[in-house]
Design a binder for these strands. Structure first.
Lengths: 178, 178
DNA sequence: TACGGGAACTTGTCAGTGCCTAGTTTGTGC
DNA sequence: GCACAAACTAGGCACTGACAAGTTCCCGTA
């Protein structure tokens, strides 16, 4: 059921999803999805929670494999967004799900921890506030790049490899002037 | 009619909009909106085109007033997103409108020109490719910051002034290492 | 083995929606 | 005065999410 939902969202966007269509695809009655998830927001909340956990896993793994290289964590963020586009879109659309759901909050906290750990390891000699805003800058950059890439808003000529393009662009995150 | 649509989107998101509800608010029959805009996508396309023009105006003005300071153009981008949240959300949701609409393309081209002009004036001694990716980095950063701010995904403690926060964060866009 | 309970699911219904077609009003230029 | 077009209305169709009530089936317990 969740898999079918993710397929639909990935190909037609979150607005195109219908509980009844999912039920048809799964070969069950039209009320079965509501039975499991409560309502439509419940279904999307489940997807958001799954996405947060998945993102946290990916960021954690990238942090470990790269030895704490923040650039690689950012690239992993973009890769997650492109590969799990449906999850990504739902996660950052709080009006479609329940952002105060415990499972969603838990995943978001875990993912956020990796992002901020990467930022704090990046410049050890800087103030706490600098570290914080540097992390926000990096997050903003990769998040913006991912959403622009997904929505096809970026200009042509970047190639078809989002990771390589993200790596190139993210290198422009320089040291802070204070 | 467009104003009513923007109010609804701003307070409940693009998914909550209904042609019939808009008609009720405007005191006309349920088919009147469809008559003017063709269909729902037509209405949202009109909003997207209006938003692109508005964004282009804002960026152009910020570029002029700041003497070409790219940071200020980025801050204007964030300000536009926060102040015209409904327009901004529709503009970057191509599955909800018709991104190939001539009016939309015209506005997008005009807005893009300001963004890239700001980037190219930033470092005159750099290669064309560096200028291009620097512009993309800046755009990604302010776009990401704006969307995260709008969706309430940023951590607390940033205050309630998105422009000041954006200015602080965007300063982390340093020089490119190549 | 009989049974009670609960989870999974079905059936039916309701208000609401987008879109379509046909008809009606209203304003304008000739 | 009138043709014409734009603006709008009225009604219907297939669809949606949500809700209420009933059904099936499995599993632990006596």
């Amino acid at each position: 059921m969740l898999d079918a939902a993710i397929d639909v969202i990935a190909e037609a966007g979150p607005a195109a999803i219908s509980l009844r269509d999912l039920a048809r695809r799964a070969g069950v009655s039209h009320a079965a999805p509501a039975h499991h998830f409560g309502d439509k927001a419940g279904l999307l909340t489940a997807i958001a929670a799954e996405g947060q956990e998945l993102l946290a896993d990916r960021l954690h793994e990238a942090h470990r494999r790269s030895g704490g290289d923040f650039l690689e964590v950012g690239v992993a963020y973009v890769r997650f967004a492109v590969e799990h586009r449906a999850h990504f879109e739902i996660m950052y659309r709080p009006e479609l799900h329940r952002p105060d759901d415990p499972a969603v909050i838990a995943g978001r906290t875990r993912a956020g921890a990796v992002l901020y750990r990467g930022a704090s390891e990046r410049g050890p000699g800087r103030s706490a506030d600098e570290v914080r805003t540097a992390g926000l800058a990096a997050w903003s950059l990769v998040h913006g790049f991912a959403t622009l890439w997904i929505h096809g808003a970026l200009p042509e000529g970047l190639g078809d490899d989002p990771e390589a393009a993200a790596r190139t662009v993210a290198r422009h995150l320089g040291v802070s002037p204070g």
